[in-house]
Write a protein that binds this DNA or RNA. Structure first.
Lengths: 324, 324
DNA sequence: TTGAAAGCGGTACCAC
DNA sequence: GTGGTACCGCTTTCAA
């Protein structure tokens, strides 16, 4: 690969001059500029980004840490981040952490050593204080980590209220909730939203809440148990779409028709929710928008712009389909 | 961030010595080594990968080019690649090309400028000759691009035969095929496999083949048309799982029961295929294995090991579930 | 308007 | 065993 020296030699100028035309910075005579540009053309010269990074201490690269790209929530999010990044000339390094603290730390170290310009975290288990101390822009998504870190989330509680109320409005008499993992922020918020609506109903019982762990298999088990204990249930608010699909499978297994015998609503609005029969009614997050917003904010931070606001809460939207 | 000079100063040695202990290369006295290691500890020094890259002309980073991470086939593939890469100390840069030649070229240039050590392509539309000329290890997945490029694929034709024959064995009398896009390698191969089985059957008609373009919406349309024209059809081999789900939806729409009235089999074995009701019978590709193999091969190439064989064809496996 | 040269943070060759 | 130093490719003062 041709280097800046080759270009300089061919054009009969110094590397400094070449650098100037490359970066459109400083004075360059018109004819000199042309000579240099010709040389660049004929050599098909592309500046070496590594050398640039070394000098500038920035790499036009950002890191994206997420639990796993196989979790159906993250492909769209990643795509949004990558789209924005690519548009602005950044590359993104993908890191699957499995929510594992050691892996997060390891990736973080690697990224720092590579001088990435910024990092987007989803649901980190790393110490927020440590994160802030890092001399590098950081944006979090999906979960509030610290009020001092720029964060993009959705209104989970409101979404949960929406979902629960919707079921009631649709005529459901007994609405249950399949919650997500105990230690997960979004799961807690959604549970709260559900409780806001039902806790004062005379029919409400603690056993209307079971734990599906955000997973399909677990959700099937949980739903089976739920419906066995409480056969009167005619509506289920599942904490995410995967859980909802598990619930649908369980209902189907015991001969319940959806939505005739039981209504099911999910949360997230992942692509999967349009693939089921019947299609799943769900509280959709603006997934792409979240990723886009996070990436835009990160680049702003990288560019040295300060951001007035630290928390961005996007709105969810109930999409009615055929499972309710 | 501390640099090698800081370490050298603190340890009272030269940078050369520090470099030696860092890389475990060359002679270093035991006590000197200890002094250096202490200095590294106290400064929490981590070598700057950018500087290393500049000198070594390699970056411990690989590029992964795929159509879109939102296509449900790719998250698992990416995960496999990233797992192997991380294990071996590499980071992976994710690039969504949309199968667009210009984007592929643009990403390729960026990656080259960043001195990535190797690139994994899926289904590139770039010129194979150009690709080989690149002085960088390359591995292709999913589609054969050139016999001179290391490639990992599955036996699509055999899988298609398997699927078609399976439907026949299950008692289907008229088996149709919803093919993928005209210009896609895997779609062509799967169509061929289907034809191998049915072309000599007396009942076979050209109109038993419709195009679903590998997408759900298109597949619904195509299936509707197919079943309208040929109501006698009692088995469908869909070119991929997404198509199969579209077919299921279409069948459901016109009141056909699956599998009682019509059997449907897919191809790929993506996670989605386990989420439907009924669960989809499919010819599963060893998706994770493909990614793993490709990444391992790439690293071998990067390490300068030559690979005897250029084409690796992995086996598919029919997974019987409840749609047949 | 242009060029020489110092550095960015490492590695590796060559002396001692 | 250890240190001095040229060099990787580029940017940016500082002089001319």
């Amino acid at each position: 690969m041709a280097s800046i020296k080759d270009v300089a030699k061919l054009a009969g100028v110094s590397v400094a001059t070449v650098s100037r035309v490359l970066n459109n910075k400083g004075y360059v005579g018109v004819d000199t500029r042309e000579k240099v540009e010709n040389a660049i053309q004929t050599l098909n010269y592309k500046p070496n980004e590594v050398a640039r990074s070394l000098f500038k201490k920035q790499s036009k690269t950002i890191g994206l840490l997420l639990p796993s790209i196989m979790n159906p929530f993250f492909p769209e999010l990643s795509r949004a981040v990558e789209d924005v990044a690519a548009d602005l000339g950044y590359n993104v390094i993908l890191c699957n952490t499995d929510g594992n603290k050691e892996k997060e730390q390891r990736y973080l170290d690697m990224l720092l050593q590579k001088y990435v310009d910024g990092i987007i975290f989803t649901t980190t288990s790393l110490d927020p204080d440590m994160l802030q101390q890092l001399q590098i822009p950081i944006v979090c998504m999906d979960r509030k980590v610290s009020t001092n870190i720029t964060t993009v989330v959705v209104n989970n509680k409101k979404g949960a209220q929406l979902a629960t109320q919707f079921l009631l409005d649709k005529g459901c008499k007994r609405v249950a909730h399949i919650r997500g993992p105990e230690n997960v922020y979004t799961a807690k918020e959604r549970l709260e939203g559900y409780l806001d609506i039902v806790k004062n109903k005379e029919w409400f019982k603690e056993s209307y809440i079971v734990n599906g762990q955000y997973g399909m298999e677990k959700a099937i088990e949980a739903t089976l148990e739920l419906l066995q204990t409480n056969p009167e249930i005619d509506g289920i608010f599942a904490a995410n779409d995967t859980t909802a699909i598990g619930a649908m499978k369980a209902a189907h297994q015991i001969g319940l028709r959806i939505p005739e015998d039981i209504s099911i609503i999910g949360f997230d609005g992942i692509a999967l929710s349009k693939s089921t029969i019947p299609e799943l009614t769900t509280v959709a997050q603006p997934i792409y928008e979240i990723g886009k917003k996070a990436a835009s904010l990160l680049v702003q931070l990288i560019d040295g712009n300060s951001i007035q606001q630290n928390l961005f809460t996007l709105d969810v939207k109930l999409i009615e389909r055929h499972s309710t």
